[in-house]
Design a protein around this nucleic acid. Structure first.
Ligand SMILES: Nc1nc2c(ncn2[C@H]2C[C@H](O)[C@@H](COP(=O)(O)OP(=O)(O)OP(=O)(O)O)O2)c(=O)[nH]1
Ligand SMILES: [Mg+2]
Ligand SMILES: [Mg+2]
Ligand SMILES: [Zn+2]
Length: 568
DNA sequence: GCCGTTTTCGGCCCGACTGTTTTCAGTCG
């Protein structure tokens, strides 16, 4: 059983317990354990009971053990009978939580969405004690977008967020402003746009915000906090505080929640209180900090923590020990080694790519079009690739500022061999190898397939290693630890593919790869010159994976890179 | 249900906004 499947069952148990009115510590414990398991690079079956897993104690360990050995959990089968799925789904509607869902279920025993819709239309919901017409209306409206995907790609949300940010920045009552929440932490997917503003006239700012042209609906509006929906139901949260509280509010609103809770717990143990307005002495309520994030973290013996690390993954302890990594930055990147041109399915010519790369200050790029017998993405045949290689060598001769490598993205065959002749492979500088077929092989088979590929002397970089597509396709079921070990053994590079829907390896797996001594390359997989800008997203993944400049292949200067990859 | 340089039992972050409230619980951030 896969980690995500185990985690999903624990999340469902938590939801059921919450609706049943169980004390919050119990269902929160299930969520904590689920989060640990879904963020594991190792397969849960390989580490359960052998390694300390935060939030997994005796009771949950036993249940997970049963789940992975039998594929079923008696306890879960039993409790889920009490609550039909629709009751849990209902809580996805804005304003409906576990208590309301339970209230409705107890009053009228709905079993499906249809039941719920009928009850709402015939006004049987608003007659339930404790519920009124507003709730009933919210349910009717909310039912239609129940099953829609709720998280957006960072790459899609960022431009919209910046647009709103820039509009608010113009307002004269706005003093300081920052994007916050998961956007500031650069999570791979984003549920909503969180913005923090400081001002002496919060009402003015809120009035402006809630009447922006792109606002479709005002969900909540208060003097310090408002929520609106824009465009196709993207939620935007605005928080307004006084200038004196900017640091505290930014710390709060950047999160994550999982970071804030243990931080506040620690602060409380030291005799203080931390909220979005500042740090206060518990005894006297005297304010002692809050203007900047830096002074808050310092006050409690920490160095400032980069937002990308604020996920409760050991950053608080590391900040106390002053052992946070010196994170890689976009400006450290010297080149891009995975690029498609109009020889295959790319939109831009090699020449255009070179020009844009030079503007970005790169010292090298590799053109890596698809090649091979599997006819995907306008794959080149070998003869065309040969022509392309000559073309690239010619261009490279003329270029002084930038080195252009000849490369290809080669399919990994079912047995792990490469779908290109040795003769041609031998002429390439950069060989990206990736899976493009049969991504659903068994864990054992696909792991061996990749290990075989990694053992091939011609492979330079393993491209988008897990094959996941955000909101579309689960990662392949791979023993990543085994992959990392083999990559390390053969000195192979693993990719952080920066394409917005891939971001593969992801943050936690990049971190684990690095801990196993594997070098990573951040590649955009650009299909047009404009897409070279995706590098920013890849760097964010690396930063969230605690990676430093030296952990990334393409921060190397040209000469060092050539030496490392034995390119003449 | 989990966890421990105060603890093996007693805590577990802290605050804003709304609807249906007659004094605040529920939901959300
Ligand atoms: N202290 C504290 N802070 C919270 C809590 N819930 C949310 N926050 C803070 C931290 C979050 O990063 C921030 C924004 O909340 P969001 O619900 O928008 O979450 P976030 O942006 O982190 O992720 P998402 O929107 O799901 O992509 O508010 C909470 O329960 N306690
Ligand atoms: Mg958010
Ligand atoms: Mg939010
Ligand atoms: Zn590609």
């Amino acid at each position: 059983m896969r980690n995500q499947e185990v985690a999903d069952i624990l999340y469902q148990i938590a939801d059921i317990l919450e609706i049943q009115g169980e004390i919050q510590w119990k269902f929160l414990a299930y969520r904590r354990a689920a989060r640990t398991i879904e963020n594991l690079s190792e397969n849960i079956a390989d580490v359960l009971g052998k390694q300390k897993l935060p939030g997994v104690g005796k009771a949950i360990e036993e249940k997970v053990g049963e789940l992975i050995s039998t594929g079923k959990l008696e306890y879960f089968e039993k409790i889920k009978k009490a609550i039909p799925p629709i009751v849990i789904e209902m809580t996805e509607i804005e304003g409906i939580g576990p208590k309301t869902a339970k209230l409705i279920y107890d009053a009228i025993k709905i079993k499906s969405i249809k039941d719920l819709e009928k009850a709402a239309r015939s006004h049987r919901i608003q007659r339930i004690k404790g519920i009124g017409p507003k709730m009933e209306k919210a349910i009717l409206k909310g039912l239609s977008n129940l099953k829609k995907p709720k998280r957006h790609l960072l790459g899609v949300i960022l431009p919209i967020a910046n647009e709103i940010y820039n509009e608010l920045k113009q307002v004269k009552e706005v003093k300081q402003i920052s994007l916050a929440g998961s956007i500031r932490r650069r999570r791979e997917t984003i549920r909503d746009i969180d913005i923090l503003v400081t001002s002496d006239k919060p009402e003015k700012v809120m009035q402006f915000f809630t009447t922006l042209d792109l606002v479709k609906k005002v969900v909540v509006k208060g003097p310090t906090k408002s929520t609106v929906n824009v465009r196709s139901d993207i939620q935007v949260d605005l928080r307004v505080v006084e200038d004196e509280s900017y640091g505290a509010a930014l710390q709060y609103f950047t999160g994550s929640k999982e970071h804030n809770v243990p931080l506040r717990t620690m602060v409380a143990q030291m005799g203080y209180k931390l909220n979005e307005y500042g740090v206060f002495l518990k005894e006297t309520d005297e304010k002692v900090a809050g203007k900047t994030e830096d002074e808050i973290y310092k006050l409690f013996g920490m160095v400032w923590i980069p937002p990308e690390l604020r996920e409760d993954r050991g950053e608080i302890e590391a900040a106390q020990a002053n052992s946070l990594p010196n994170l890689v930055e976009l400006t450290d990147i010297r080149g891009d080694l995975h690029i498609h041109s109009n020889y295959s399915d790319g939109k831009s010519s090699i020449e255009d790519m070179v020009e844009t790369a030079k503007k970005r200050g790169y010292k090298y790029i590799a053109i890596t079009d698809h090649v091979g017998s599997v006819k995907i993405a306008g794959a080149l045949d070998e003869t065309t690739l040969q022509n392309q290689i000559s073309h690239i060598r010619e261009l490279d001769q003329q270029e002084k500022e930038i080195r252009i490598f000849a490369g290809a993205e080669v399919n990994i065959n079912l047995d792990g061999s490469l779908d290109l002749s040795e003769d041609t492979l031998d002429q390439l500088d950069i060989v990206i190898c990736s899976l493009h077929s049969k991504l659903r092989m068994s864990r054992k088979e696909i792991t061996n397939r990749i290990i075989n590929a990694l053992s091939n002397e011609y492979l330079t970089i393993l491209g988008h290693p897990t094959g996941r597509l955000l909101n579309k396709r689960q990662p392949s079921d791979i023993d990543l630890i085994a992959i990392f070990e083999v990559a390390k053994e053969h000195g192979k590079i693993l990719e952080i593919n920066a394409y917005p829907s891939r971001l593969d390896l992801n943050d936690v797996n990049s971190r684990t790869a690095n801990q196993h001594g594997v070098l990573l390359a951040i590649d955009t997989d650009a299909h047009s010159s404009g897409q070279l800008r995706f590098m920013d997203l890849g760097v964010s993944v690396a930063r969230r994976g605690w990676l430093e400049r030296n952990d990334i292949l393409n921060t190397l200067p040209l000469e060092a890179l050539c030496k490392k990859l034995r390119i003449k």
